[in-house]
């Protein structure tokens, strides 16, 4: 379907793909290897590409030094709830933006685009004061609410693409059958949209999981910190302990890696159905 490939073309393709794979995977391999070296060996020279002795010392250190389990739990809760709620809310707005024409539509879409241009640091101070007034500083709910707001604009635009690719006829038929628009949305569109929804949720989850500056600003006590905040703490106080740092990095990457391994097909599939056609 894409045309026949010449032998030379095939060779170029394979070489390129292999090189890129090596380039992509190597940093991950290196951080894993670093984390598995005994703390003293990390700074031995020449560098060992395969450690002579494997050691879990860095991981032990990590959980001794800091309550890493708590950070992981916090991140998991915040990213899951915020990601799910943002996806749900964005479906509603995306649906309206895909199916109706109305005067304020382009203004709303512009407003969504502009949110992407706002540097977080202009809003951090006032946001902290706002959250203080709402008694939501140093509180997971507070961070969730803010993350939902952060996720909504891009998520809406993304889901709008999916809705536009689904023929109107589908829900019209359902509405003729006597369903309300809301039920039509859920009964008919939801199943069709599943890959898109999964993709949208993963985007939201990953964004929330990785967010640093808002979390550093809004979370104070150890019990409420998320993983990036904790990582940031490792690097800037005490000494840069590359051993436990690498162990922490591995733990940070793991959940999203599992998610990606499980859903990478959904992401492309989801995006394909939502791709803007030209």
């Amino acid at each position: 379907m894409i045309g026949k490939e010449t032998a030379a073309g095939r060779a170029v393709r394979i070489v390129f793909l292999v090189l890129w794979l090596a380039f992509t995977v190597f940093p991950l391999y290196w951080i894993l290897i670093t984390s598995l070296k005994a703390p003293g060996d990390i700074f031995s020279f020449p560098l060992a590409y395969w450690p002579e002795h494997f050691s879990l010392e860095n991981y032990r250190e990590l959980f001794n030094k800091a309550d890493f389990g708590t950070y992981l739990t916090n991140s998991l809760i915040v990213a899951t709830v915020a990601g799910a709620v943002a996806t749900a809310i964005s479906m509603l707005s995306a649906y309206v933006l895909a199916r109706f024409e109305f005067r304020t539509k382009s203004a709303l879409l512009t407003a969504a685009l502009v949110t992407q241009m706002i540097p977080a640091f202009i809003a951090l101070g006032p946001l902290y004061l706002l959250m203080t007034d709402l008694k939501l500083v140093d509180n997971r709910l507070g961070l969730i609410l803010v993350y939902i707001a952060v996720c909504i604009p891009f998520c809406t635009v993304m889901l709008r693409g999916f809705f536009e690719n689904i023929p109107d006829a589908l829900e019209e038929a359902a509405m003729i059958d006597g369903l309300s628009r809301f039920s039509a949305l859920f009964r008919v569109l939801l199943p069709v949209m599943r890959p898109g929804i999964v993709a949208a949720f993963i985007f939201n989850f990953v964004n929330c999981w990785n967010e640093l500056f808002l979390s550093v600003t809004l979370m104070n006590s150890d019990a409420n910190k998320t993983v990036p905040t904790a990582l940031n703490g490792f690097i800037s106080s005490f000494n840069i302990d590359w051993g436990s740092m690498s162990a922490a990095a591995v733990f940070t990457i793991l959940p999203t890696m599992v998610l990606f391994a499980f859903a990478s097909r959904h992401i492309v599939q989801g995006l394909t159905s939502g791709a803007v056609k030209g």
Binding site: L130, L145, A149
Partner: peptide, 13 residues
């Protein structure tokens, strides 16, 4: 959500 947690702090900032 966007008005309260994104635009309001931005404008106040």
């Amino acid at each position: 959500f966007v008005a309260v947690f994104t635009y309001y702090p931005m404008i106040a900032g």
